[in-house]
């Protein structure tokens, strides 16, 4: 006998969106973009597994690439289990301000965050090797006024020494949420660790008493703590500097 609820009730699942914001300017050409492409492709099955076994949220992935301008690679967030990474090519300038504006536009209930009343705050992962070439300050200020962004887990990887780490710290809101990768092996490790950890922390329920100064740490605090533990234990130690 068919259950009375099967045909009548429309069930949906809570979501957490993991954003990859990727610098695809000309300076990324070669081993930087190649390593990045391979590393993200490799970590997707792991994120998919977290999504399927997670008690609290399905993980979706959105990708924003920026060079001469910013462009969404995913027209909307894609469930991790259905997501496949399209290799990105590198050329052009570093329109970081445009990337901030595009992110701001989609971090809204009217855009990427429209699903399910109780969606989780997103995790945003920025990868860049350079210096913004556009007027980015106002765009970044506007982005910081966005509640979704403010509540998000934010992390950045500076690829090589030429990356402007101050800008990346302004983006994450915390210098401790900016890591530097000097060679492909470390970049690979960082992408895997940061993607998996931000997905795990971002997609779980937790308790917080806002009025309680002793409350459990925020997800961003939790995340940074995990990053520091990994860094201090030598997980990202670099034998050689290539970039």
């Amino acid at each position: 006998m068919a259950n009375i609820y099967d045909d009548v009730v429309e069930v949906a699942r809570r979501t957490m969106v993991l954003f990859f914001v990727v610098d695809t300017s000309g300076s990324m050409e070669g081993s930087k973009i190649g390593t990045l492409n391979q590393a993200i492709e490799d970590v997707i099955p792991e994120i998919s597994e977290i999504s399927q076994s997670n008690a609290d949220a399905q993980i979706k992935i959105a990708v924003l690439a920026f060079s001469n301008s910013a462009k969404w690679i995913t027209p909307k967030p894609v469930p991790a289990e259905d997501f496949s990474w399209d290799y990105l090519n590198a050329s052009g300038l570093t329109a970081f301000g445009d990337a901030c504006s595009c992110l701001n536009e989609k971090l809204s209930r009217n855009a990427f965050m429209s699903e399910i009343t109780g969606s989780f705050a997103p995790a945003i992962f920025l990868l860049s090797d350079g210096e913004p070439t556009d007027e980015y300050i106002d765009c970044l200020d506007d982005l910081w006024k966005n509640n979704w962004f403010r509540k998000a887990i934010k992390v950045a990887v500076a690829i090589g020494e030429d990356a402007n780490k101050e800008v990346l710290a302004d983006f994450t809101g915390d210098p401790d949420a900016v890591l530097t990768a000097h060679n492909p092996e470390v970049l690979r490790k960082m992408i895997r660790f940061l993607s998996v950890t931000s997905s795990q922390i971002g997609s779980k329920s937790s308790s917080v008493g806002k009025a309680n100064p002793d409350a459990a740490p925020s997800k961003q605090d939790d995340f940074i703590e995990q990053v520091q533990i990994a860094s201090n234990s030598g997980d990202f130690a670099e034998d050689e500097v290539l970039w």
Binding site: G118, S205, G209
Partner: peptide
């Protein structure tokens, strides 16, 4: 309003009575 995103107030908070 403290229950936003994946955060919830809790009976374990020291300020539970106010929530």
């Amino acid at each position: 309003d403290n229950c936003v995103f994946n955060y919830t107030t809790s009976i374990c908070d020291r300020t539970a009575i106010y929530n």
